[in-house]
Computed example of a mutant assay.
Amino acid sequence: MTETTRKLTFQVTARRTDVHGSVARCKDAELLLDTDLAGRMDAFNPAELLLAALSACIIKGIERVTPILKFQLRGVEVHMQGVRQNVPPKMESIDYEIVVDSDESEQRLALLHENVRKFGTVFNTLGSGTRLSGVLRRAP
């Protein structure tokens, strides 16, 4: 099987702990989930998890391409805002801002953003069914 035809699989198990929450597990990691109808401040709700997954995808994509592009950076921060439509319930749009602490040129920043948009698994999955837009800018 070639690299282009090999498929990765992912597994997560989630379990309700009580009326206030649940826990998700994969590998050696555990994540508290906000599944309480009243909400809770110490856990991510499903929409926030979606935005966190997209943020992680963006950062992981940057980590993957920086050595290939020989791109130098000191840090990355991602800000997300999702808008939920009520009927039918779905994430209507997601806006993001990627802030990169780097001395690279504007052209190289644009190349980094292009790679994030082109090669992110979660990015491409969400982008096919949700209005997904954002910017990559240099940290002040």
Rank of each mutant, 00 (worst) to 15 (best):
V135S: 13
L37V: 03
S22P: 01
D18L: 09
K27C: 01
F44V: 08
V116F: 06
N86L: 14
V65A: 02
L8I: 05
G75H: 12
Q72Y: 06
R40L: 04
T125D: 03
T9K: 10
A139D: 05
G127N: 04
L112A: 14
N45G: 06
L32T: 08
M80E: 06
Q107L: 10
V65R: 10
C26I: 01
L112I: 09
L109H: 07
V87Q: 15
I59W: 00
T17P: 01
P46E: 02
R137I: 12
T4W: 10
I68E: 11
S22V: 00
I98R: 11
L132K: 06
K70I: 06
L111G: 10
L32Y: 11
I59Y: 01
G82S: 11
L31W: 12
S102G: 05
G120K: 09
R6V: 09
Q11P: 04
K60A: 15
E3A: 14
L51M: 06
A24I: 00
F71S: 05
D103E: 12
E104Q: 13
L50M: 07
P67H: 03
L126Y: 03
T5Y: 13
R84S: 05
V116Y: 09
E97K: 14
Q81R: 14
G134Q: 04
A24T: 00
R74M: 11
E92L: 11
V83F: 12
T2G: 13
R131C: 03
R16N: 12
Q72E: 15
T125Q: 08
Q11F: 07
R25N: 11
V122P: 00
E63I: 02
N45V: 06
V83T: 14
T125R: 10
A47S: 11
A53Y: 00
S93L: 00
L33C: 15
E48F: 07
N124F: 05
F119K: 14
I58N: 05
A38Y: 06
P89N: 10
K90P: 01
D42M: 03
I98T: 13
R131E: 06
T4G: 03
A29G: 01
I98K: 11
V76N: 14
M80P: 02
D28M: 03
M1P: 14
L126R: 02
S105A: 08
N124P: 02
V135Y: 08
C57E: 01
T9M: 09
E63D: 14
T5G: 12
G127Q: 03
D95F: 02
A43G: 05
C26E: 03
F123C: 09
T66Y: 09
L50E: 00
D101L: 02
L111W: 10
G82C: 12
V65F: 12
V135D: 10
G134M: 04
D34I: 01
F10P: 07
T125K: 09
K118D: 07
V19G: 04
I68T: 11
G120Y: 05
E63A: 08
G127A: 04
T66F: 08
P46I: 04
L132C: 02
E92Y: 11
V135E: 11
L37T: 02
D28G: 10
R40Y: 02
G61C: 12
D36H: 15
P88I: 10
R15W: 05
E30I: 00
R40S: 02
C57T: 03
G120Q: 05
A43L: 02
H20P: 01
A53I: 00
L54S: 06
G39A: 09
L37C: 01
D42R: 05
P67W: 09
E63K: 13
